[in-house]
Amino acid sequence: MLAFSDSTPPTEEKLKPTGGNESYPALVWRRLKRSWTGMSGLLLVVLLLLMSVFAEFVAPLDPKATDSGFAPPQVMSFHDKDGNFSLQPRVYALAETEELDPVTFQPIVGPDYNNPRLLGFFVKGASYDLFGLIPGDRHLFGTTDGQPVHFLGTDKFGRDILSRAVYGSRVSLMIALTVVFIVTVVGTTVGMVSGYFGGTFDAWLQRFVDLVLAFPQLPLYLALTSLIPVTAPTNVFLAFVIIVMSALGWAQMSREVRGKTLALARIDYVRAAMAVGATDRRIILQHIFPNVMSHVIVSVTLAIPSVVLLESFLGFLGFAVKPPLISWGLMLQDTSTYSVIGSYPWILSPVAFVLITVFAFNALGDGLRDAVDPY
């Protein structure tokens, strides 16, 4: 038998698309969610930023509070001194033992199983002013009785390493984000203007970029940061370090953006905009800038780990942050001698924060690179 098809014209509901039109950010987000590395990097980046913003609340102790000197990390346990299991986590207070350190001949500090300290969340501890305005004494975690606990041990002055690392994330990430912001703004602007106008202007501007790229950066960092007096205020020294890093970092970004702009300036819709009399400013901002943003975003996420590593290295050498500020690089100055590392290996703990930060931003950048690529 012959089958007759329905000749009824399609209604408006049948013609209506089911999914709707997605914007470019929505498409990027949908593709980013498929990458487990990108999402794990995004989660770690969010946690790092929250930790740095709410450092007073996250840190269990006052980073400037001192104790008796080097002390090993206190391990969390779910067992009492008799080995019985308990749902309440605890740590044991540190006390001097009869054994002596073979290097310093000081009594070795070990756990005192007769003095357990129960752990909890949102406990009371050292008072602080959140953002310098909101007073408080609640901390994310710590002991229920307010006694100090050192999950990563203490440094040579008896200061809690974990609390100092949490506070140090604020300075290290602030330096990285500020430097990358300045580098991105200057590099993107110079690159787009140079690639769009071309000609003699582009040739001379690129020779200046070549001059900046030709400088050996590490010796120049050390030379420039050594020019500022040691007695200068901490904020002045920090601003000078940011300016030096930014002045030497924008050239590579501008070279990458220029290459993208040279290709975009020859596309048909840009030439059509020129033909109808669009101004150079409108063409750069409305047609070229949105198309280079995907590359800029990926470059930003990949540049932040480089700045974090550079700040840690310069801080280790003593050319980045000065006390009383705290940064991961400054904390690593205590690891300058092999004897200290051999006797007190827990002072290398800030390295873990640097590694996590570098992995987080690199993973996020790798996921974004795949998500923003239209091909």
Rank of each mutant, 00 (worst) to 15 (best):
G158Y: 09
G158I: 09
G158P: 11
R159I: 09
D160G: 07
V166T: 13
V166Q: 10
Y167N: 07
Y167I: 06
G168R: 05
G168L: 08
R170V: 05
R170L: 06
L173Q: 08
L173G: 07
I175T: 08
F181I: 00
V185G: 13
T189C: 12
V190A: 15
G191S: 10
M192S: 09
S194T: 14
S194G: 12
G195D: 01
G195Q: 01
G195K: 06
Y196W: 10
F197S: 01
T200A: 15
D202L: 03
W204K: 08
L205W: 12
Q206L: 13
Q206K: 10
R207Y: 06
V212Q: 14
V212S: 11
A214M: 11
A214R: 14
Q217R: 15
L218F: 12
L218V: 10
L218T: 09
L218N: 04
L220H: 05
Y221I: 08
Y221G: 06
L222E: 04
L224Q: 04
L224A: 08
L227Y: 04
P229C: 00
P229T: 06
T231I: 01
T231Y: 00
T231R: 01
A232R: 11
P233E: 03
P233G: 04
P233F: 01
T234A: 09
T234L: 03
N235S: 12
N235F: 11
V241T: 09
V241A: 10
V241S: 05
V244K: 02
S246Q: 00
L248Q: 01
L248W: 04
Q252D: 10
M253Y: 10
M253V: 12
E256Y: 13
E256V: 15
V257H: 08
R258F: 06
G259F: 02
K260Y: 14
K260L: 13
T261S: 13
A263R: 10
A265P: 02
I267Q: 15
D268W: 03
R271K: 15
A272F: 12
G277M: 06
D280V: 03
D280C: 00
D280Y: 03
R282N: 12
L285M: 13
L285H: 12
I288L: 09
P290I: 03
N291T: 01
S294L: 01
V296H: 03
I297A: 13
V300W: 07
V300K: 09
L302S: 11
L302M: 14
